[in-house]
């Protein structure tokens, strides 16, 4: 299932996939795969992404 909330939050923060990837220390492909719903990130990476986008885990990954 695609993670549209992550994509929207990233676009709202005016970040490209590559820039977000750089901030959290992963490759652009990993961010792309998370947004496409084809990779299930660890909690550690979820927290790093939330911190980079100034969002909570509920906002991006949990709860629908």
């Amino acid at each position: 299932m695609k993670n549209k909330r992550l994509k929207l939050a990233r676009v709202a923060a005016d970040l490209s996939q590559a820039e977000l990837a750089e901030q959290v220390g992963v490759t652009r492909q990993t961010i792309g795969l998370i947004e496409a719903g084809r990779y299930n990130p660890t909690l550690k990476l979820c927290i790093a992404i939330c911190q980079a986008l100034d969002k909570t885990l509920n906002d991006l990954f949990w709860g629908e």
Binding site: Q23, V24, G25, V26, T27, Q29, T30, L33, Y39, P41, T42, K44, L45, A48, Q51, A52
Partner: peptide
């Protein structure tokens, strides 16, 4: 915050 890409690892 720098972390190693877990997917690649």
């Amino acid at each position: 915050m720098k972390i190693k890409d877990e997917r690649i690892v």
